[in-house]
Amino acid sequence: MRTLIASGSPLEPQIGFSRAVRVGNMLAVAGTAPIAPDGSVAAPGDVYGQTRRCLEIIATAISDAGLGLDDVIRTRIMLTDIGTWREAARAHGESFSEIRPACTFVEVARFIDPGWLVEVEADCVVQERAAQGSEV
């Protein structure tokens, strides 16, 4: 069964993509840009702030799919300047220091919006949860 998770972006049906797609126990979250709730660029010029916003959007998509951040097994962080990786890593660490998914940082030439300094992707695997009250 294929479940599409939408973010409400008007670009989703135009481009033909979903914020996330769940098939079986896998969930893939698309490249997520630092878009503020009003549609503007979040945290202009601030890689840390933009990465935090990307991760907030990803967390919402994961939650909308019925999963949690602890289901994330891989993240990809794409930066227009690899020299800023530590700023992005700090934001990533705030969300994933205990979960510790596989993570890759790459430099890209540019994004659709020149104000975007970072995009983040995430892959999840649904874990079996222990029934409440039972021993693990």
Rank of each mutant, 00 (worst) to 15 (best):
A88V: 03
I58F: 01
R86N: 05
A61H: 05
E56A: 13
E128C: 10
A88C: 01
L79M: 10
D64E: 11
P44R: 11
G24L: 01
E87M: 11
A59W: 00
A33D: 10
V21N: 00
S97F: 06
D81K: 05
E119C: 14
I15K: 02
A102T: 15
P44V: 02
G49S: 00
D113G: 08
A122I: 02
A42I: 01
V23S: 01
L69D: 00
I99H: 06
V136L: 10
A65V: 05
R2W: 00
P37V: 12
E128H: 07
P114L: 01
T60A: 06
I112Q: 11
A28H: 12
I82W: 05
I62W: 05
T75D: 11
A36V: 15
V21D: 10
F105E: 08
I99D: 05
T80Y: 03
E98R: 13
A65L: 00
T3F: 03
V125I: 09
R129D: 14
L27Q: 04
S9D: 11
I58A: 02
V23E: 14
L11M: 00
G133T: 12
L4Y: 13
A65H: 08
I73E: 14
D38C: 07
A30D: 02
A65K: 07
A33P: 05
A36C: 13
G39V: 06
D46E: 00
A130T: 09
G24N: 04
A88G: 04
I112K: 13
D46K: 06
D38H: 09
I62P: 02
P44S: 02
A6N: 13
E128L: 14
W116C: 15
S95E: 04
L69T: 07
G93I: 10
S95C: 11
G8Q: 13
E135S: 15
